Computed example of a mutant assay.
Amino acid sequence: MTGWFSRWGAWRDRGLLDFDAFYIVAQRVWLGDPAQAYRFDRLVQMQMDASGGKFSFMPWTYPPQFDLLVAPLALVPVGTAYFLFSAATLGFYLLTLRAVAKSYFALVVILLSPALLINLMCGQNGFLTGGLIGLACLTIERRQVAAGLSLGAMIIKPHLAIAFAVYALLARRWITVITATTVILSSSILCTLLLGPQIWSAFLGSVNDSATYLGRGAYPLFRMISVYAMLRTAGFSASLAFLSQVVVAVFALSIVARAIYRRLPAHWCLGLAAVASVLISPYAYDYDLTILGVGMALLLPDLTRLASARERAAIYSMTLLAGSYTWFQILRACVQYGTGVIDYPVPSFGGFPLLVLLWLTVRVLLRGAGEQAAVQTVSTEGDLVDSIGAALRGRQ
């Protein structure tokens, strides 16, 4: 992919991928007009100039904090920038995932391999967001400041951190909440000083435009993993699909809240939050499944112990299927049309295995929690009987 982005040999006349959008915005930061990237008509022209006239639909809706984060990439050629960005974020993600998964690291990587390849192929930031979420999960119980820094940095993709914000609030991790809020406010002030106050109106305008594009189905919905995309490609109206997405989001967050209320183990609650987080936003893609990998890393040690053989097979299958659907469609396009480019309507499917996975996970964990409570009750009753017996023997 480094050779592809560097336009070596046969790749000289190539189209644009996601990382090219990062690089274009990084250039605009140094040119002093990053607000232009939030105007779709201007951004299209920039993308056509970079690709030799090829049209690409890649609106820019990232918060200004991400503009500053990618700005250093423009200091080197695009191929080198891709290599540095992908290698650094992949290393960060794998190291964090290994710390979370421990002996289950290899299994998690195998289950997550389709999503990992997607991130490498398009140069997306899923490794960065997945690493930040993983770091927050590692530290939120004992080093809340570090967790707050990680969650605050998720301002680059805030819709993927909603479930963890709910966890931090309901679990009363106040230092984490205060630290994350401080990071968000201070980074916003920095963006205003460096990029100008107009960057915020440009950003909000782009977000509004993206909602319109999403309602019209302009995005590649087949790559989205949301219930919204699944229903839209099935022929339902945008309003009904969005309402269904709201219902799913509330349901997913209620599971996290219920787990905290029942005082389930913290790593179970955090794992459920990771699974829920990819089901909340209608604008969630296959490359965001790196966060699901963090959830699996937290839950698999107990799921493999508590689940039956069929349940384990289903959990593994749903995790693989959620990330493999995009590759299946690309392969089908290669076989049928001789190219992996998909410019025709394709159903979205990724939301279904994620819903099944959440249901299976909750089912197994609640059953395990019930069995554990029953064992503790029997143990407590046995201790009570022993105590009474000892007391009676003492009186005798």
Rank of each mutant, 00 (worst) to 15 (best):
M1F: 14
T2I: 11
S6F: 05
S6C: 08
D13T: 09
D13L: 08
L17C: 09
V25P: 01
Q27G: 14
V29M: 08
P34F: 02
P34A: 08
A35I: 01
Q36A: 15
D41P: 10
M48C: 11
M48P: 09
D49L: 14
G52R: 12
G53K: 10
Y62V: 06
Y62F: 15
P63H: 02
P64H: 00
D67K: 03
A71L: 01
A74T: 03
V78P: 03
A81H: 06
F83T: 08
L84G: 08
A88E: 06
L90P: 00
Y93L: 11
L94A: 12
A101Q: 02
K102L: 13
V109Y: 01
L117S: 04
G123H: 08
A136C: 12
A147D: 09
A147L: 10
L149N: 05
L151P: 06
I155A: 08
I155P: 00
I156N: 07
I156M: 15
L160T: 05
I162A: 12
Y167G: 03
Y167S: 07
R172W: 11
I178Q: 10
A180S: 12
I184G: 01
S188G: 15
C191G: 10
L195S: 05
S201P: 01
V207D: 11
S210D: 14
L214F: 06
G215E: 11
R216P: 02
G217L: 03
G217W: 01
M224R: 09
M224F: 15
M224Y: 14
I225V: 14
V227T: 14
A229W: 04
T233S: 13
S237Y: 07
A238I: 04
S239V: 12
L240Y: 13
A241E: 02
S244P: 06
Q245W: 02
V248W: 00
V256C: 09
A257Q: 09
A257H: 01
A259P: 04
A259T: 02
H267Y: 14
C269L: 07
G271Q: 03
L272G: 05
A276H: 05
V278N: 02
L279C: 11
S281E: 03
S281Q: 05
Y283R: 03
A284Q: 10
Y285R: 04
D286M: 07
D288C: 07
L289F: 12
I291T: 13
G293S: 02
V294D: 01
A297Q: 08
L306K: 01
A309V: 13
R312T: 12
I315W: 00
I315M: 10
Y316C: 09
S317V: 15
S317G: 14
T319V: 14
L321S: 12
S324R: 00
S324D: 05
W327D: 00
Q329Y: 09
Y337M: 11
G340C: 13
Y344E: 13
P347N: 08
P347M: 10
F349Y: 12
G350W: 00
G351M: 05
G351F: 03
P353K: 03
V362F: 04
L365D: 00
L366I: 10
G368N: 05
A369Q: 15
E371L: 14
A373R: 15
A374V: 06
V375T: 14
T380C: 11
V385A: 11
A391N: 13
Q396L: 14
